[in-house]
């Protein structure tokens, strides 16, 4: 870890200005990912701008009845918040499924969105990685990839996005707000993480120097009937090998509204729009759920060791939608 400067910001514009004041500057939130990557030599900032004291730590209703979550709200506070639990239970569940109690107390919403992949090649600077060092290659394709992407990957990078929270935010059409020296801006989740393509090192659509200031969840009655399920190789304190955020509204056995997002299958939280379209207006039963999953997973391009994820995600879609149907029917 190289030596670096440290500044604590107390206002948003101050933070943005401080970041612009030095090359290789980074915002420091909870530090749970950045400090780790600095120890690994993956990140070598010259300046850290500490944003934990910014007045962005509130959760409240927007005028339209949506939820506005500040960027420095900790993962713990987000998951414990009564309105989040009431209106978006899958979001609370997703956050609770991530990391550990200690890490959730430290980690912020903004930082969670910007988590880097946990691909073992990315975090080991002795190995090639197109994401960390563009053009150096992707050894995962022919190497260890049993927990790598099956959807939307490219030959340049098959890493997955590690966030659980972001999967729920993708399902609920969250909008990310940010601030730059030129003023504020917004990005919907659907555009926040660009496709991998030939540029796996470009991980978000945020403009340079932008500070995430918050996340807005539009009003969404269906989100109250939602759940998040995570599958991992240890019962807790492990990253997903597959996860799903789902919300469902069923009336008279017909799917009125559905939201589906899949985790640990792509470089970004994977909004399953093909599956959603297949389900809308159709019957809420296991056959329909399976067909919808197949519609989404038709695009899957599994490698030799991660083909199980197709089976896993299909089962998860059916299982979680079935559970939600039973819950809605009760």
């Amino acid at each position: 870890m190289r030596e670096f400067g440290y500044e604590r910001a107390f206002g948003v514009s101050e933070a943005v200005a401080l970041l612009g004041s030095a090359p290789d500057a980074r915002f420091l939130g909870g530090g749970t990912n950045l400090v780790d990557l600095m120890k690994a030599g993956v990140e070598r900032p010259a300046l850290l701008v500490d944003v934990r004291e910014l007045p962005l730590d509130g959760v409240g209703f927007t005028g339209g009845g949506g939820l506005r979550i500040g960027a420095t709200v900790t993962n713990s506070d987000l998951a414990a918040h009564p309105e989040v639990r009431r209106h978006h239970p899958a979001l609370a569940q997703a956050v609770l499924a991530g990391a550990s109690g200690q890490l959730r107390n430290m980690a912020t919403v903004g930082g969670n969105l910007l988590q880097r992949t946990r691909c073992g090649y990315f975090t080991d600077i002795s190995k090639p990685c197109n994401k960390r060092s563009p053009g150096s290659g992707c050894p995962a394709v022919d190497g260890e990839h049993h927990n790598h992407a099956i959807l939307g990957a490219s030959a340049r990078c098959i890493a997955t996005h590690p966030s659980d929270m972001a999967v729920a935010l993708a399902a609920f059409d969250a909008v990310i707000s940010y601030e730059t020296a030129d003023g504020p801006g917004e990005l919907p989740m659907s555009e926040f993480y660009p496709p991998v393509g030939d540029t796996p090192h470009i991980e978000t659509a945020l403009p340079p120097g932008a500070l995430i200031t918050g996340v807005t969840l539009p009003p969404s009655p269906v989100a109250a009937h939602s759940r998040y399920r995570k599958v991992r190789e240890r019962a807790s304190y492990a990253f997903a090998i597959g996860s799903i955020a789902a919300a469902l509204d069923v009336r008279d056995g017909v799917v009125r509204e559905v939201r589906l997002a899949l985790g640990a299958v792509a470089s970004r939280p994977w909004r399953a729009r093909a599956a959603e379209q297949a389900l809308i207006g159709g019957p809420a039963n296991a056959e329909a759920f399976a067909a919808a999953a197949d519609a989404e997973l038709a695009a899957a391009e599994p490698l030799p060791d991660n083909g199980y994820k197709v089976t896993l995600m299909r089962s998860l879609v059916v299982a979680v939608l079935t559970e939600l149907t039973e819950e809605v029917s009760r």
């Binding site: 780790d36 850290l48 934990r52 890490l103 107390n105």
Partner: peptide, 26 residues
């Protein structure tokens, strides 16, 4: 030293945190 074991857990403002990923200056 990577936030992966919890042995360094302390309480910060009464909440548990891993001190290995907490910069002292912060």
């Amino acid at each position: 030293d990577q936030g992966q074991c919890g042995a360094c857990t302390v309480l910060l403002d009464g909440r548990r945190a891993v001190s290995c990923l907490q910069l002292a200056v912060a």
